[in-house]
Each structure stands twice: as structure tokens, then as C-alpha cells.
Design a protein around this nucleic acid. Sequence first.
DNA 1: CTCGACGCTGTGAGGGTGCTGAGGACGACC
DNA 2: GGTCGTCCTCAGCACCCTCACAGCGTCGAG
Lengths: 214, 214
Amino acid sequence: MVEDESRLASALQRGLQAEGFAVDVAATGPEGLDAARHGGYDAMILDVMLPGLSGYELVRRLRAEEHWLPVLMLSAKDGEYDQADGLDCGADDYLTKPFSYVVLLARLRALLRRGAPERPTVLAVGDLRLDPARRRVTRADAEVALTSREFALLDYLMRRPGEVVSKTELLDHVWDASVETAPNAVEVYVGYLRRKIGRERLETVRGAGYRLAP
Amino acid sequence: MVEDESRLASALQRGLQAEGFAVDVAATGPEGLDAARHGGYDAMILDVMLPGLSGYELVRRLRAEEHWLPVLMLSAKDGEYDQADGLDCGADDYLTKPFSYVVLLARLRALLRRGAPERPTVLAVGDLRLDPARRRVTRADAEVALTSREFALLDYLMRRPGEVVSKTELLDHVWDASVETAPNAVEVYVGYLRRKIGRERLETVRGAGYRLAP
DNA sequence: CTCGACGCTGTGAGGGTGCTGAGGACGACC
DNA sequence: GGTCGTCCTCAGCACCCTCACAGCGTCGAG
């Protein structure tokens, strides 16, 4: 847990220990970052307002270093954009103070349960980068303008780089299942994407689907 | 999305579609459960108060059947125990109505970031490797380009290394059963494969079929 | 050794698959 | 109402995969 208000920190620590968790407390941002890097923890409870390094920045750095530790963010700011920002920095959950201890516990359990490795907030494949939150794509640091369908298609492909994705799978996930769409639509949009991100980056696997070159 | 208030449902659907998501709506619990089981979705937004089957129960059943689809639960109940119950039933996140659309989106993105891509195993026989997901074959680390029929044939043979597989069995499994194909087609494709993966690796057992040398 | 059955392969027709430009439908914005 | 952007269908085209065919090679029984 990274929290600088010592009263809250020790109250929470005692509560969590009573539940059977092993808890360490760090009081500043840099300490917390260091602990997260080397401590081998299962999850982190992280305050936003911290001396030295904000919670936002801490998560961002952690994710940039490819640490996928589940993070529950705690903040006194309850604005919708504060919350969205925290999550888009890479936090997995966000709780506003004052919070219910029961809820904190339940959310922590939910976080530990899924435990599965998380993926980066910004997808990157080669020199392509896609930011789902900002809805932006850059190719070698140059912005690429995509329509929403093009964006959704690239998003799906970038989550599975190197894998072959079939046209039917793309139709199921990128297009609306309730509207019957011809598979040719996929071909058309692959064509649009190729013109924008580079022809060779999106390979055709005849009879099977498409593959984003890793 | 499983939501019985049609106004909210269609507003959300439109919003999410504008973001590039493919969205289906179910209005009752049983419908939602069914869709979650078979729809191949990436995530589910689930109201708690539903006709037929409550959201709690829906998640519980889903998890009992080992479906690990990420679930974002939506509820008008903001009591701390309601929230904790929802999460402990197996939901991954919980949002109380009224909620901010921005926050919903951010939380949805956080959920989608994780996903369990558990890659299917890579088949290996000798120095041959075949990756079904990437649809890629290497021979001593050198990539081998195969057509889709060749690939399907090698795939089938590599799942049964050392066994003798008859031509009729190959016709049944690698070729379309509805189209009558001459057994000679198998011989032709075995020939193609041999040229690409090495002549000695694919033995002929006269009168019985073919065997992939283990 | 002889012969027939089985398996291999070069050739070429056909057809399936994917790509593209054109254009209509629809909605947002001015 | 006009204009623009986006989505998607359509039709034409090019390419290469697929497979039947036929001739030849190979194997094994007698």
C-alpha cells in the first residue's frame, strides 16, 4: 500500500492483515514505485496525492516498465475526469475517499481474482502506437487519422499481433453482429488501413485471414 | 449489454458504437446469459435488476460454467453491501446509477485491457514447428510458406506423429466432406508438403496411408 | 523376371479468393 | 437544402490455389 496519511494507512493495514493479507506500507511515491518493482506483490493500493511522485505518474511508469501488478487507486478527487484519467494511466480500479471498507475489500478480491496479466494502456506494435483512451494512432510518431471503423479494426488486430485473425472473427468483434455484413467489407477496410499504416504491415493469409506483422 | 430499460440501453448502445465497439443488447436475464455463453464477446455490461434472472445470479452461473468474460455490473443500488455482493458473485467492476458516461468508458477500457489470450500450444515434431494461432510453420527455425490446404494437412498429421493416417481419413478431416474428392488429391498434396518440409519426413506406408516421422 | 496395383508428379483448366474504384445511402454539420 | 465524411455494396479484374488427368515409376507377389 502506498499512502502518506499514516492514520489511514495503519488502520487499513491492520484491517487487511486481519483478513489474512500480508501488507507493507510505503509513504512516498518513489518508495512505492521501488517496492512495486521489486517486492513481488500480488496487488497495490495506491493513493493519488503522494509526496515525491503522484499516483498517476507512478502507475504510468510502472506500466511503461511492463509491470502488470493490479493497482487499486485511491483518491479524494471524485470528478469523472479524475477517475477516467487514473484508469487510463493504467490503474485497474478507482475508489474515491471516503470509501467503505467493505467495498474496498470486495474490489481488492475482484482484482486478485482476475490476476491475469494485464495489457498496456497504449498498444504498440513496431513503430505503430494506438491509444484507446485518446483514440489516437501514430506511425513513427506521426499522427494517423482513422475513422472509427478503421480504428476499431486496427485496435482488434493490435491486441493480437502476429496472429492470424479470420474475417468472420473480425466481423463478429469489430462489426455489429445484429447487422449482416458482407465479408467484403473487411477487405475494403483492410485496404483503407493499409494505405494509412503501410502496405506491408498488414499481411493477407489467403484462405485464413489477416495478420499484423509484429 | 444486458439492460431492460430500453431508453438507457439504446443510448448506451449508440454511444459505444460511436466509440467503435460492436454492441448487442439483451433485455432479460436468460437472454443475456445465453448471449454471454455463445456470443464470443470481449466484455459484458450487466444490469442487476433484470426480468427473469438477476444480474447477480447471471454472473454466478456464468462463473460456475467457467466463463471468464469480463463483467461490468450496473446497479441503482449504491449500498456498500450491494456492491460487495456483486463483486463477490464474480463481477469485475461495479458502477452505481446514475453514472458518468466518461467513467463507464474508462472502466470498460480497463477491463478490456486484460483479457486472457492463453495461446494454444505450438505443435512440434522433430525440428518442425507449427503454430495454429499464427498460422506459421518453421523448419529448423526457417519459415516455410504453406497454402491453406497444405497447412491443414500438416496440422492434422502433426497432431498424430508416428501414426499411420489413411487417405480416406485425411479426405474426411482435411477436405470438405460434402465434396467428393479423388484420393489422388491427397497424394498430390503430400507431394507438395514433402518438397517443402523435407522428403524423408513424410513416409508412405504402401496400401495403408502416410506417417509423419517423429 | 513379369505383371498388376499402387503411388508420384507435370500440366493445365477452372474457380475461388482477395483487391480496387465507383457510387449510393445515411447522417452530421453548416 | 447543400456539403462533407463515413460506411458499405457492387462489379470487374487478377492472381494463385485446387485438383483432375494421364503418363510414368516403384513395389511386391508369384
